[in-house]
Amino acid sequence: MGLNKETAARPAETRLAEWRRLGYDDWRAMLDDKELRLVVGQDDKRYSVVSYALDDGDGRVRMSVAVDDGGWSALAPLVRDEIMNSDGTFVSSEIEQTRRR
């Protein structure tokens, strides 16, 4: 059985929500840092949650979270990310605003 994507997405979204409360300077301070958390999902399986920040160019910072269950999913984990502009806005927010126009 493969990775339960719905269950794996929960810790990824939780981690991104923690980051969304921080400002741009905090995001820049985390560049090239990595963090590993081991969490137990609602399915009682252990998940590895790896979080890291990358310079996305033009002053943007990309926060990525990769989640796997230690099986084959370690080769292709579930990945969620957010990108923050230097003015503190999120790239995804700009895309949504453009779609509404």
Score class of each variant (00 low, 15 high):
83 I>V: 15
68 D>Y: 09
84 M>E: 12
75 L>P: 00
66 A>R: 12
87 D>M: 07
65 V>G: 03
82 E>A: 04
58 D>P: 02
64 S>Q: 10
96 E>L: 13
62 R>I: 02
97 Q>I: 06
51 S>H: 09
57 G>D: 12
67 V>T: 11
92 S>L: 05
62 R>Y: 04
60 R>S: 01
96 E>N: 12
79 V>A: 06
57 G>P: 11
73 S>T: 09
61 V>E: 02
86 S>N: 09
79 V>R: 14
78 L>H: 06
55 D>G: 00
57 G>E: 10
63 M>C: 07
60 R>E: 14
90 F>P: 05
48 S>C: 07
86 S>T: 11
68 D>C: 13
57 G>S: 03
50 V>C: 00
88 G>S: 08
67 V>L: 13
69 D>H: 05
92 S>R: 15
52 Y>F: 14
61 V>Y: 13
47 Y>F: 13
68 D>N: 15
64 S>P: 02
72 W>D: 13
98 T>K: 08
49 V>T: 03
48 S>D: 10
67 V>K: 08
69 D>I: 00
96 E>M: 09
49 V>H: 04
64 S>D: 04
56 D>A: 15
81 D>A: 11
71 G>C: 09
73 S>Y: 04
93 S>L: 11
50 V>R: 14
49 V>A: 10
75 L>M: 13
98 T>D: 13
86 S>D: 15
49 V>C: 10
57 G>T: 07
92 S>D: 04
52 Y>D: 01
82 E>T: 05
89 T>Q: 13
61 V>Q: 05
96 E>V: 06
57 G>V: 06
78 L>G: 00
87 D>Q: 06
90 F>M: 15
71 G>Q: 15
75 L>F: 01
70 G>M: 04
53 A>R: 04
77 P>K: 04
94 E>R: 15
98 T>Q: 14
52 Y>I: 01
77 P>Y: 03
98 T>R: 07
69 D>M: 02
59 G>N: 07
62 R>W: 09
65 V>D: 06
68 D>S: 15
80 R>T: 02
81 D>M: 04
51 S>N: 02
92 S>A: 11
83 I>H: 07
59 G>H: 08
55 D>W: 00
59 G>V: 02
64 S>N: 03
93 S>H: 03
70 G>L: 07
73 S>A: 05
75 L>W: 09
72 W>F: 06
67 V>H: 15
86 S>W: 06
52 Y>H: 11
95 I>E: 00
47 Y>N: 12
86 S>G: 06
53 A>L: 08
73 S>R: 02
56 D>W: 05
57 G>K: 10
70 G>T: 01
77 P>D: 01
50 V>L: 14
61 V>D: 12
75 L>H: 05
73 S>V: 10
64 S>W: 00
71 G>R: 14
89 T>C: 09
79 V>T: 05
58 D>S: 14
95 I>N: 01
78 L>K: 08
69 D>F: 09
87 D>G: 11
66 A>W: 07
79 V>I: 15
53 A>T: 04
82 E>C: 01
66 A>V: 03
81 D>Q: 13
76 A>H: 14
